[in-house]
Design a protein around this nucleic acid. Structure first.
Length: 459
RNA sequence: GCGGCCGUAGCUCAGCUGGUAGAGCCCUCGGUUGUGAUCCGAGUGGUCGCGGGUUCGAAUCCCGUCGGUCGCCCCA
């Protein structure tokens, strides 16, 4: 042992890991999410952690911090396809759908819960390795708007019923990119993609910067792309944004009234009208959710450029600055880099790690035992190992999780072990050939005779 | 990638203007005979992030470096 270099163990920033008691809750969360997704008929797929770099960057957005793989002992000069860790699950999905096109049934409804990697600077709630839970629906040629409404409904059901999330106030904000896109293109007369994207980016920051600065940025950007744009037109644009702000506490019906009024005013702008109508249809289908669960908000546009219609963003109501815990949207054309077919889709992704880490940090997770075991089987002495083993096996066959203590040490030690791991029951097999089984409830301290063949926790 | 703050025991930290390292928690053992959490006692554990400089002497001052953290960019 001497002379060995000891590397001081430390957490790698941005790569979270949990103690067993927290991991147990994390698994409950994943099981819960999986169950809700499957209850809506979504199937599970898993894609490799890596894709070819060319596949990942096919869409042209290289602004993401992507981890590229390198072999330690790669041959000099040998040519290899460059592999990279995926930074989301949408790009791998597009590749997957294109690749297995003939074997899939459309609309293809799948969920995917995997880790993704981004080499950005870690911060609170922002990791370099994290888990996302995605649901997407991919259709051939046309995708019914009904799915745009199903996404937030599923998300609300999932998030509001996670263990520990019961009292968290969250809100799903929805918009449709066509609304602003129509205004930008037809009224502000800025047709180029760059201009639209830049203006979207500024709109996205509405809540993060001072109003004065926001208006200044917006003005500058609009005038940069269309110097002839009149102040009046810009004013109308800002007004439109304002009409769909601060409706967080309003019912869907109230929100719809505002939207219908906007449709009336949006004559000669078919794209904007289409967006507003789509948004109305989506909201109509979400009336069953509690007031405040879902709100229309035109400042939601999402940074990613592949969204073409509905967009979603979910935050904590009392702490929007923590960032988005769930987001997504509709994209008309994602797989065109991989297959010559029209495959529109709509999807949403839970930022699992960000959400989980926040609840953990605030001590709001129902963190319990350090072990999944229901029962600790006492080993009275090494001579009694056989009866203890058999008793444990009997109880396991009846569905209990049983850990057999590893040595015939003092009972004090065995009890303390159960206590530390918070194993709820301690079982005492017969200490002598003619004595009886006993079981002790660690919480109440009660101990009584028991039969391994028919004992239950109700006793 | 850019800027602010911080780096002492496994954890949370103390150590004032330089004089060779401390507390609490955790952990281990003990308080005899078949029973945990409390209580009491004892013990393990630190090249004070790393490298250099100033000094008789540095955890303490200076420089560099690495790491962490917060904000910006961007995003789940």
């Amino acid at each position: 042992m001497s002379g060995n270099k000891i590397y001081k163990p430390k957490a790698i920033s941005g790569f979270p890991e949990w103690l067993p008691e927290t991991r147990l809750v994390e698994q409950q969360w994943l099981d819960h999410i999986r169950k809700v997704f499957e209850s809506y008929g979504f199937c599970s797929i898993e894609t490799p952690s890596v894709e070819e770099l060319d596949v990942i960057t096919a869409k042209g957005e290289v602004d993401k911090e992507i981890y590229v793989l390198e072999r330690l002992h790669k041959e000099d000069g040998g040519k290899e396809a460059r592999l990279a860790l995926h930074f989301d699950q949408t790009v791998p999905l597009a590749r997957y759908v294109a690749q297995h096109f003939n074997d899939l049934v459309f609309p293809f409804k799948r969920y995917q819960m995997q880790r993704v990697w981004r080499g950005e600077r870690p911060q609170a709630g922002r990791f370099r390795e994290f888990t996302q839970c995605d649901i997407d629906v991919i259709a051939q040629d046309t995708l019914p708007l009904h799915f745009d409404a199903e996404m937030p409904a599923i998300i609300w059901e999932t998030l509001s019923s996670l263990p520990g999330m019961e009292n968290e106030k969250i809100q799903i904000r929805i918009s449709n990119r066509k609304i602003l896109m129509g205004v930008i293109q037809n009224e502000l007369e800025i047709p180029d993609d760059d201009g639209v994207a830049n203006i979207f980016r500024i709109v996205d920051k509405l809540e993060k910067v001072e109003l004065e600065e926001f208006l200044k940025n917006l003005n500058n950007e609009i005038l940069a792309h269309n110097p002839n744009c009149l102040p009046k037109q810009i004013e109308r644009f800002v007004e439109l944004l304002a009409r769909l702000k601060n409706l967080s506490d309003e019912s869907i019906d109230t929100q719809l009234k505002v939207l219908y009024a906007l449709i009336e005013q949006a004559e000669r702008n078919p794209l904007t009208i289409e967006g507003l109508r789509d948004l109305c249809i989506v909201l109509e289908s979400l009336k069953h959710l509690p007031v405040g669960a879902v709100v229309a908000d035109l400042s939601i546009v999402r940074g990613l450029d592949y969204y073409t219609g509905t967009v979603y963003e979910t935050t904590f109501v009392d702490d929007p600055g923590y960032g988005t815990i769930c987001a997504g949207g509709r994209y008309d054309d994602l797989a065109s880099s991989y297959i010559n077919k029209a495959l529109p889709g709509v999807g949403i992704s839970i930022g699992f790690s960000r959400l989980f880490a926040r609840l953990h940090e605030q001590g709001k997770l129902p963190v319990g035992p350090k072990s999944p075991a229901d029962i600790l089987m006492v080993l009275p002495s090494d001579e009694r190992r056989e009866v203890a083993t058999q008793t444990a096996q009997t109880l396991r066959k009846r569905g209990f999780k049983v850990e057999l203590f590893h040595s015939g040490s003092k009972l004090k030690r065995q009890m303390a072990y159960a206590e530390k791991k918070k194993i709820p029951y301690v079982w005492f097999p017969p200490f002598e050939d003619n004595s009886e089984h006993e079981v002790k409830c660690m919480e109440s301290g009660e101990q009584s005779k028991a039969d391994p063949e028919n004992w239950t926790t109700d006793e």
